[in-house]
Structures are given as structure tokens and as C-alpha cells.
């Protein structure tokens, strides 16, 4: 290709137009940039700073040393991962089935049923969590019905423990799993399934060799986002865990509220942030990040 003449007719004016257009676009995104800087970047930088300071303000690594020395932090971290993995696994099982059902239905019917998935999504987490408390507690609806029908004699401990927390979290996280899965299943051309069947694959083989691999991007996106959101959950373990379930966010809150120890809390927060970013970074090597977060409605 021939090099563009720098001094063709109107070259300077057109160049100036292009530059001013770019400034306009930048100007439009300025308010958003300011907001993000003010309420996200600044506090995180502050947190980061605090985690390296003594109460007097001198530089120290003691806060991170404490995370390593005190077994309670390791327990919290282990429990956080255990719950997050369990919830993600259950969301995959339940969400895949639900998304599959929705993807097979005519779009209009699927749209109506999708409202059922989204409705709780639009309800406050606090409200949903207390709703589960009502259902699961000692004299809650499930125990009353179970005893009345004779399934069990004594009230079951359904809440204020790991089980209750997982149930609540699964319910809250399910839409984040279903939406990307549903989108990725809708994108699977019916001809792929028909083609596989035509070539001799029975329903199970079609699923295993074709449908599952083709829905993997949705599975991956849903799994990643569910797991990351679980890591940071606070309200649900606080309410349904009855104090016995302390996840990372609860631990941090405890440090601040009970002991006013900002240093250790900040250090723990930084560790959690680093873990989250590491997972996101790893995930981004396998799938595009905008796909992971673009899975929503």
C-alpha cells in the first residue's frame, strides 16, 4: 500500500476533527472514571496502605505475619473456600438442569420462566436470607411440615450451621450460574445436536460429546462468577450461619467491629482481593472476561 500523503487536501483539518472526537468520548466517560476512582480505587489504596501500618502509622509487616501465625485466619480461609466450592458445585448441578430446561423451551415460555429466576435476583439479599431463616429455623415451615407428615420426629438443625448457609448461598448464586449457561446453551445450533444424532450418537453420547463441550463457556463463566461472589459473601453466612460460620468477610468485619484492629482486617482484605484477582486472571486465560460478566441478562 502506498504511504498516505501527510499533506493531502484537508489532512490537517480532518486530523483535528478526529482528535477532538476522541476528547469528546473521553469527556463522556470522565464522570464514571471519577466515581470509580473515588469509591473503588481510593478506598482500596487506603486499605492497602493500612495493612502495612502499625496503629501509630509506622511501616510494618506484622499484620500479614499475624495472618500466617494465627490458625483462626487459616480456618476462616479454609471454610470460605469449602463453602464457596460446595455452593458452586451445587449451583452447577442445579443451574445446568434449569438452564437446559429453559433452553429447550420456546423463547416466550422460557422468558416467562426466566422471570422466576430473576425475581429473587432483584430482591434484596437480606430479605431473601431472612426468608430462608423463616423456612429453615427450628419451628420453621420445613420442620413443621416434616414433623407433621412424620418424616422426622425431632426438629432438624437446618439453619445456624454450614447446611443452612449453603442452602441460602445456592439460592442467591443460582441466577449467576443460570444466566451465562442459558445464553451459551441458546447459542448451540440445533443442527449440532441433530448432526451428532444422525452420525449415530444416542442421547447420552450427544450430550457428552457435543452438548456439554459446546456449553462449556457458559459453565466456565457461571462457575467463575459464582465462586468469586461466594468468596465475598457476608450477609448470608452472618444470618444463616448463626455465628458458627465465619467466612472471610465476616472475619474482617469481626476484626473491625469487635477489636477495632484495622491493620489485620486490611491485610485480610488485601489477601482476599489478591485471591480473587488471581482466580479472575487465571480464568481470563481460558475465556474472555467480558464473556464471563457479559452472561447476565
Amino acid at each position: 500500500m502506498k504511504a498516505l500523503a501527510a499533506e493531502g487536501p484537508n489532512a490537517t483539518e480532518l486530523g483535528r476533527d478526529a482528535r477532538s472526537e476522541r476528547w469528546m468520548l473521553f469527556g463522556l466517560s470522565l464522570p464514571a472514571l471519577l466515581l470509580v476512582g473515588l469509591v473503588v480505587v481510593l478506598p482500596i489504596a487506603w486499605l492497602f496502605l493500612l495493612s502495612f501500618q502499625t496503629e501509630g502509622g509506622a511501616f510494618t509487616l506484622a499484620n500479614y505475619q499475624r495472618l500466617i501465625d494465627q490458625p483462626s485466619y487459616r480456618r476462616i480461609l479454609a471454610m470460605t473456600f469449602e463453602i464457596s466450592l460446595t455452593v458452586t458445585a451445587m449451583c452447577i448441578v442445579l443451574g445446568y438442569a434449569l438452564a437446559y430446561l429453559l433452553a429447550q423451551l420456546p423463547r416466550r415460555v422460557a422468558g416467562v420462566l426466566m422471570l422466576g429466576v430473576l425475581m429473587p435476583f432483584w430482591t434484596s439479599i437480606l430479605v431473601r436470607t431472612y426468608a430462608w431463616l423463616v423456612l429453615l429455623q427450628r419451628d420453621g415451615l420445613i420442620n413443621v411440615i416434616g414433623e407433621h407428615l412424620g418424616f422426622w420426629q425431632k426438629p432438624l438443625a437446618l439453619v445456624y450451621n454450614m447446611e443452612g448457609t449453603v442452602v441460602g448461598l445456592v439460592h442467591i448464586m443460582l441466577p449467576f450460574m443460570v444466566l451465562p449457561l442459558y445464553n451459551s446453551m441458546r447459542a448451540i445450533d440445533r443442527d449440532y445436536v441433530r448432526g451428532a444424532a444422525n452420525l449415530g450418537a444416542g442421547p447420552i453420547q450427544v450430550f457428552w460429546h457435543v452438548y456439554l463441550p459446546l456449553s462449556r463457556p457458559g459453565l466456565f463463566a457461571g462457575g467463575t462468577i459464582t465462586f468469586i461472589l461466594c468468596l465475598g459473601s457476608y450477609v448470608t453466612p452472618a444470618v444463616l450461619g448463626g455465628g458458627k460460620i465465619v467466612m472471610a468477610a465476616n472475619g474482617i468485619a469481626g476484626d473491625v467491629e469487635l477489636y477495632f484492629s484495622w491493620g489485620p482486617a486490611s491485610a485480610f482484605g488485601v489477601v482476599l482481593l489478591v485471591i480473587t484477582l488471581t482466580i479472575l486472571f487465571t480464568a481470563s486465560r481460558f475465556a474472555r472476561l467480558d464473556r464471563i460478566f457479559g452472561g447476565g441478562a
Binding site: R194, A196, A197, V210
Partner: peptide, 20 residues
Amino acid sequence: LAPHKRGVGMVFQSYALFPH
């Protein structure tokens, strides 16, 4: 007979080649 038991070859309009 179900499609997978018919043993016929088929070329689809979309080709239906498995992208993975």
C-alpha cells in the same frame, strides 16, 4: 426408528461441523 439408529449420512445446510 430414532435418528441415531437409522444409519443414514446427512449433509446439513449449516454443515453442523462440531466447532470444538
